[in-house]
Structure formats: structure tokens, C-alpha cells
């Protein structure tokens, strides 16, 4: 479960950041994102991890493959679908990762000065 989760986070963070984002920093961001979630109180981290895995599996319904095995274009489309979902937990999941990826990526990025 842990390695599936790690892989989904890498793909999700990549999909959330801009195309031009530096790939090394993107992976660093994904690593830190995983640490951030694991450091959260358990009543928050467990639902987030569970929902992230659901997000991965939801790819099968949408495009015949789990999220992390999809092309970059379909990954972006799935992220957009969840962002606009009528279910608030789905929207919140993407919103949380979007905000944190931005914060972490630009904490590492040299452009900050």
C-alpha cells in the first residue's frame, strides 16, 4: 500500500505543478509531500491516504488504467474532474495537494529570490 501511495503522490504532484517545473524539484516536492501527510495527526492523514488511493483507482473507471499509469494528459484531465467534483472530499483532496505542492515547490525553488 505504501509504495502505491508513494507512486500516486509523485504523479499527482507532477500533474499539479506546471509543465515547466524542474523535474528534480518536482520529485523533492513529492517526497516532502509524503512526509507532510505522514506527519499529520492520524485522523487527518489516514483519510487522506485512503482517498488518494481511491483517486488512483478511480482512473480505471475514467480511462481504463489507474491514475499513476495514465498519460500526462489524462492525468491532468482526471485532476480537473476531481477539482470540480460535486463531492467535497474529492475537491478538498486535490485542493490540499495543490496548495501544499505550490508551497513546497517554491520553498525549494531558487526563483524565490
Amino acid at each position: 500500500m505504501s509504495s502505491s501511495y508513494d507512486a500516486v503522490i509523485s504523479s499527482l504532484v507532477k500533474g499539479l505543478l506546471d509543465d515547466q517545473a524542474n523535474p528534480v524539484l518536482v520529485e523533492q516536492t513529492a517526497q516532502q509531500m509524503r512526509k507532510t501527510v505522514r506527519h499529520m495527526p492520524r485522523h487527518l492523514s489516514l483519510p487522506i491516504i485512503f482517498l488518494t488511493l481511491c483517486f488512483d483507482w478511480a482512473g480505471i473507471l475514467r480511462g481504463g488504467r489507474i491514475f499513476r499509469c495514465q498519460s500526462a494528459v489524462s492525468q491532468r484531465a482526471q485532476i480537473e474532474d476531481w477539482k470540480k467534483s460535486f463531492l467535497s472530499p474529492c475537491r478538498e483532496l486535490i485542493r490540499f495537494h495543490e496548495k501544499m505542492s505550490g508551497f513546497i515547490y517554491y520553498s525549494y525553488s531558487p526563483t524565490k529570490n
Binding site: L17, D18, Q20, A21, K99, G102, Y106
Partner: peptide
């Protein structure tokens, strides 16, 4: 309002455009 904090509130796609 450092850049990471702006990215936190605006999201990475929007801040990229505003860089």
C-alpha cells in the same frame, strides 16, 4: 508574502503565470 506563501494561496499553476 514570500513566494512559497503566495503559491500556497494561489496554487502552483497561477503563481507560475505570475512569476
Amino acid at each position: 508574502s514570500a513566494l512559497p506563501h503566495l503559491a500556497l494561496w494561489l496554487g502552483p499553476q497561477r503563481i507560475q503565470k505570475l512569476l
